[in-house]
Design a protein around this nucleic acid. Structure first.
Length: 135
DNA sequence: GCCAACGTTGGC
DNA sequence: GCCAACGTTGGC
């Protein structure tokens, strides 16, 4: 089992939008590293949902409901893939970027260290630390 | 609004 | 294959 974190600008697609729809096709990823991460996701992997730009906090927990397949929004370019995600639960308390940066156990979180990457792996320890902060 | 970090593009 | 120019992301 692997753990992940995905980012979304709530202005474009928020946790509430996600819950309303009951699932999301995670499309639009156009970065090789993020694409490789999508391709490594397995059915049922837990995924933290982070609001970038507005909010700057981890707001919910999702899971992979369908593994990677070619991005249907650009059939002419087979390089890119999507996965499908389903909401699991909203965090009782969102975990802010500030909190994350202040937490010694989260100093190596890729969200912080490589802030431009929109799909990043998270270690078990990091994952559980964030869930604990959020509950 | 600014800027750092980083990816991409294109000329050589 | 190198590197300058440029574009994008996202925190502050």
């Amino acid at each position: 089992m692997n753990y992940w974190l995905v980012k979304s600008e709530p202005d474009a697609y928020s946790w509430d939008d996600f819950v309303r729809q009951g699932k999301a096709v995670w499309d639009g990823v156009r970065n090789y590293q993020a694409r490789n991460n999508l391709a490594s996701m397995r059915l049922g992997d837990p995924v933290l949902f982070y609001h970038s730009v507005e909010g700057k906090e981890v707001v919910g927990l999702a899971k992979v409901s369908h593994e990677a397949y070619p991005d249907p929004t650009i059939p002419e370019d087979p390089r890119w893939v999507v996965v499908e995600l389903e909401p699991v639960t909203r965090l009782s308390r969102p975990v802010s970027l500030q909190q994350i940066k202040a937490e010694p156990l989260l100093q190596n979180l890729l969200l912080v260290r490589q802030s431009r990457l929109s799909v990043v792996p998270v270690s078990v320890n990091e994952f559980e630390c964030i869930l604990a902060l959020g509950s």
